[in-house]
């Protein structure tokens, strides 16, 4: 292979990983923007989405299974908010963040008991395990394009939802100034539930589209959540587009690190750069202080 194409191949490999982080990072962002909580159970929504879809796909066609998984996991998200966060409004954000870590462990255990410890995956949406798209001598799995397309659709829909629809505006109002929003007749609690449900839905959809690439098992959530979190931070919390760019950056950075250093150092490189970014731009590349970009969208 020509060396120029090798570079391109590394880049495409970075995009593959980055698209996975990006789609996880978007979910992080939404809950953060709407409630100020960093939801570390976001990775578990991704895992649940994949698990439910794999199970449903045995009985119904793939698109129906995906839709089913998204709806079911969204309901789980709403339920979690109603059961836990609604009752704990008076507690500090830090408490709520720690609760999400607890929830993530509980969801993992529940998945272990509902399903089992085995690794499973959805079929590739187009082609199979070995089909690739050739691009100037470098190759990329068609599934990566599905992931990127999903990311694009989610970002556009989120933008429209937050900016042009009444519930979306209410959600932003509720997070930027809760008391004023309440005076204006917005039910803040319901808005938070909606935010959790939406994030869970986004996570579930992510879990479905990445399943053929990463495969799905009950423990996949936590490492994805950490990388997705890093992506959201690098991009700037509170802005879905920034999360996507952050995710792609983290992915490409990893691939670049592998190309120059032993592969074992790729995480070190990523987190070293993450720290650097936080020193120089504490709010990430495209974020604003306090992660307010969505709120003031």
């Amino acid at each position: 292979m020509e060396s120029g194409n090798l570079e391109l191949q590394y880049f495409l490999s970075g995009i593959t990983k980055g698209s996975i982080y990006a789609v996880v990072a978007i979910g992080f962002n939404l809950i953060y923007s709407a409630t100020g909580v960093l939801n570390f159970a976001q990775g578990e929504f991704v895992m649940l989405g994949g698990m439910v879809a794999v199970t449903l796909a045995r009985f119904v066609p793939l698109p129906v299974a995906l839709a089913g998984a998204v709806v079911i996991v969204a309901l789980v998200g709403c339920l979690l908010e109603i059961l836990f966060f609604r009752r704990l409004q008076r507690h500090s954000i830090l408490h709520l963040v720690i609760i999400t870590i607890g929830l993530s462990i509980v969801l993992q255990e529940i998945a272990l008991h509902l399903w089992d410890e085995k690794v499973r995956s959805l079929p590739y949406f187009t082609g199979n395990e070995i089909s690739t798209l050739k691009f100037l001598g470098a190759a990329i799995s068609p599934q990566v394009l599905w992931v990127l397309a999903t990311v694009a659709v989610i970002v556009v829909l989120l933008h429209i939802f937050l900016k042009y629809t009444l519930p979306g505006r209410a959600m932003r109002a509720g997070s930027s100034n809760p008391s004023a929003a309440m005076l204006a007749g917005i039910n803040i609690a319901n808005m938070r539930t909606l935010a959790f449900g939406l994030s869970a839905a986004i996570g579930a959809l992510a879990g479905c589209v990445i399943s053929p690439i990463t495969m799905t098992h009950y423990e996949m959530g936590a490492p994805l959540a950490i990388k997705g979190f890093a992506a959201a931070i690098v991009g700037g919390l509170g802005n879905p587009m920034a999360a996507v760019l952050g995710g792609l950056m983290v992915g490409v950075l990893e691939a670049y690190s592998v190309s120059r250093l032993p592969a074992a150092y790729s995480d070190v490189t990523v987190f070293a750069v993450l720290l650097l970014v936080l020193f120089v731009r504490p709010h990430g590349f495209w974020g604003r202080p306090g992660g307010e970009s969505v709120r003031e969208h």
């Binding site: 495409l12 490999s13 423990e219 996949m220 074992a264 790729s266």
Partner: peptide, 20 residues
């Protein structure tokens, strides 16, 4: 001789290195 994270989600970068 490359070592990767056991939770890795995609290994095309390491394999690209071997291909090269």
């Amino acid at each position: 001789n490359e070592v990767y994270d056991k939770q890795a989600t995609d290994l095309t970068d390491i394999l690209t290195k071997i291909k090269g």
